[in-house]
């Protein structure tokens, strides 16, 4: 048998800005690796779908019985379940992306020493970053699709705009994954992950996931409006209820900024972290 190791292709123009040798254009091999690994851990894979569904059933039905109806984004009354479902969709996009890009990446970095093995092949740090983020997105996309199907089953999707909730969920997940990975590159030990919980949990609870912004006093509203998850929830809620307006481009812009900043910092830092 003869060796048929193809030379890595020259990187596309944009990526030539990166340090030489940090990108071999083969991040797809990492997707293959993740898909193969998750075939053995299918239970964990499937379980990610159920968590938001449990929340939807419990909170939508149970808490909903205490609330009745709420004014939707355009003022028209909607059921409590229809109110929180897009919030849960946004939150699960955030949670999945952050978990994958922080805990999982840190574990592979420090304990599995998996990236070390990958870096002794033609793969570079940028291949790894793109591959990991790509997998987080594929996973997040599947969960979002599953959750949207459940919403449809409960009759919570009333507008064709809801179809756009899927790509929107991917944008949100990408943004959180990019920033999460950038943050992970600064982590030194597991102790630092308290800070991740400390950032994620309040966001999950207070970003109008469970009740409208009007509950807060004005100064607190301003704080909440600053949080990324708030923009994700607004985006999703507008799409699934059909209350679409031009201002939603602003929410989208928020995530594009997060993506650009996150990817830039992460790929710089991965170089420092991996190629000592």
């Amino acid at each position: 048998m003869t060796a048929q190791v193809p030379a890595p292709p020259a990187p596309p123009a944009l990526l030539r800005l990166l340090p030489a040798g940090s990108y071999a254009g083969r991040s797809r091999a990492l997707l293959l690796r993740s898909a193969t690994a998750s075939r053995r851990a299918w239970l964990a894979f499937v379980s990610g779908f159920f968590e938001p569904v449990f929340y939807l059933v419990a909170m939508g039905q149970g808490l909903g019985s205490l609330v009745g109806v709420l004014p939707g984004p355009d003022g028209a009354p909607i059921s409590y379940a229809a109110f929180i479902a897009p919030g849960l969709l946004a939150a699960s996009a955030m949670n999945g992306a952050v978990f994958d890009s922080t805990f999982n990446v840190f574990f592979k970095l420090k304990y599995g020493r998996l990236y070390e093995a990958m870096l002794s092949t033609p793969l570079g740090p940028v291949d790894i970053a793109l591959g990991e983020i790509g997998w987080a997105l594929i996973r997040g996309g599947l969960y979002a699709l599953g959750f949207l199907s459940v919403m449809a089953g409960f009759g919570l999707l009333v507008s064709p705009w809801a179809l756009l909730a899927l790509p929107a969920a991917l944008v949100v997940a990408f943004a959180f994954a990019a920033v999460g990975m950038a943050a992970t590159s600064y982590m030194r030990s597991w102790q630092d992950f308290d800070l991740v919980t400390l950032a994620i949990l309040p966001m999950f609870l207070f970003s109008t996931t469970f009740y409208p912004l009007s509950v807060y006093p004005r100064w607190l509203q301003l704080v909440v409006e600053f949080l990324p998850l708030f923009h994700a929830v607004e985006l999703m809620r507008g799409l699934t209820t059909g209350a679409v307006h031009l201002g939603m481009v602003g929410h989208l812009a928020y995530f594009l900024v997060m993506i650009v900043v996150g990817v830039t910092v992460a790929s710089r830092r991965l170089d420092v972290l991996l190629l000592r």
């Binding site: 190791v5 890595p8 030489a20 002794s120 033609p122 570079g124």
Partner: peptide, 16 residues
């Protein structure tokens, strides 16, 4: 290695 890292790594084997 500074210039052609991936090209070199494609042709070597590493046992850490």
């Amino acid at each position: 290695p500074d210039v052609d890292g991936p090209r070199i790594r494609a042709r070597i084997g590493v046992v850490p």
